[in-house]
Design a protein around this nucleic acid. Structure first.
Length: 274
DNA sequence: CACGACTCCTGCTGGC
DNA sequence: TGCCAGCAGGAGTCGT
C-alpha cells in the first residue's frame, strides 16, 4: 500500500498525538509478520515514553530513548490511533496501548514488520535494514547531480533503479511511473545512459510528485488510510498509473502498460522517450 | 559487485 | 450470477 508519501502522512498524523505518550501495554495477536514480532517487545515497551516518530524511507521509527521500534507497513499495513477498547478485527495483529490511545497495527498480507532496535546496539540508522538505504528524496542531498553520478555505468533500467531504494528511497511503483512521466523518460531507459539534464528533470519530478502526494494526504489506491482512517486523494491526479488504454492527458496518445521485474509500469509512448 | 528471479501473504477483480 | 487465475502499492534473499 504505502510508498513514502503515505508513510509520511501516517507519521505526521501520529507524531503530534503520540509524542510524549507512555506505553501501558502491548499485545500481539499474530506475531508472524515479515519477521516474527520480537517476543520480548512487551517487556521492553511497558512504561516507556515515546519521544518522537521519525521516518527513514518507508520505515517508521518510534524513538523510546532506550531503543527504537521499527515499523514497516509492507504492502497492506495500516497504523491507526483508535479509542481505547476498540474491538479487534481480523488482521489487527498488534496493539500498543498508550496514554494517548490505542495504536493498532493492521496488515492483511503480513508483509509488514515490527522490530526493535536497542540503543545499546548503536544508532538505529545503522540497523541492517536501514544502513544501505539511498538518500531521502525530499532532503537537500537529493538532486540531478546525485542521480547522474549514481547512475553512471549502471545497465539496469531507470524504473528498476528507482524501485531498488539503494540510490533514492521511498519511490514505489506508483510514484516511479508518475515521476518518469513528469520527466518525459521511458521506464525502459537505461539508467546509465541518461543525460545530466534528464537526471535533473527526473530528480525534480520525483520531488514534486512526492510533495504533491503528501499534500493530498497520500494515495488512496485500494485501501490506504492515514492514522485517523481517512483516505487520500492522490489517485485522482495520476497521469499514467492505472490508466492503460486511456488517453494521455498531455498528448492524447494511448497509455501503455508493460511488465518490468514482475511489476507493471505505465507510460505514455509519445511523451516519454527511452 | 551487479543484476534479476523468487518469495512471503491475503483480498480483489476481471474475464470467462 | 459465480468461479478462480492472476495481480496488487514492498523488498530481502539467493542464484548467476
Amino acid at each position: 500500500m504505502p510508498e513514502l508519501p503515505e508513510v509520511e502522512v501516517v507519521r505526521r498524523g501520529l507524531e503530534p498525538k503520540v509524542a510524549g505518550a507512555i506505553v501501558q501495554s502491548l499485545s500481539v495477536r499474530e506475531p508472524r509478520l515479515r519477521w516474527p514480532v520480537p517476543t520480548d517487545l512487551a517487556r521492553r515497551l511497558r512504561g516507556a515514553r515515546l519521544r518522537s516518530v521519525g521516518r527513514r524511507g518507508k520505515y517508521l521509527l518510534f524513538d523510546f530513548g532506550a531503543g527504537t521500534l521499527i515499523v514497516h507497513l509492507g504492502m497492506s499495513g495500516q497504523l491507526r490511533l483508535r479509542a481505547p477498547g476498540t474491538r479487534a478485527e481480523r488482521h489487527d495483529h498488534v496493539d500498543i496501548e498508550t496514554s494517548a490511545g490505542l495504536l493498532r497495527f493492521t496488515d492483511p498480507r503480513r508483509f509488514g514488520a515490527i522490530l526493535w532496535h536497542d540503543a545499546a546496539q548503536g544508532d538505529v540508522l545503522a540497523h541492517p535494514l536501514l544502513a544501505h538505504l539511498g538518500v531521502e528524496p525530499l532532503s537537500s542531498l537529493f538532486d540531478g547531480a546525485l542521480l547522474y553520478r549514481l547512475s553512471r555505468g549502471r545497465s539496469l533500467t531507470i524504473k528498476q533503479m528507482l524501485l531498488s531504494g539503494r540510490e533514492v528511497v521511498g519511490v514505489g511503483n506508483i510514484y516511479a511511473s508518475e515521476s518518469l512521466f513528469r520527466a518525459g523518460i521511458s521506464p525502459r531507459a537505461r539508467a546509465g545512459r541518461l543525460s545530466r539534464v534528464r537526471c535533473d528533470a527526473l530528480a525534480e519530478a520525483i520531488r514534486q510528485t512526492l510533495r504533491d502526494a503528501i499534500s493530498r494526504g497520500g494515495s488512496s489506491l485500494r485501501d490506504f488510510v492515514d492514522s485517523d482512517g481517512a483516505h487520500g486523494h492522490f489517485q485522482l491526479d495520476c497521469q499514467v498509473y492505472g490508466r492503460a488504454g486511456e488517453a494521455c492527458r498531455r498528448c492524447g496518445a494511448m497509455i501503455k502498460i508493460i511488465r518490468q521485474q514482475q511489476r507493471s509500469s505505465f507510460y505514455c509512448p509519445s511523451c516519454q522517450r527511452p
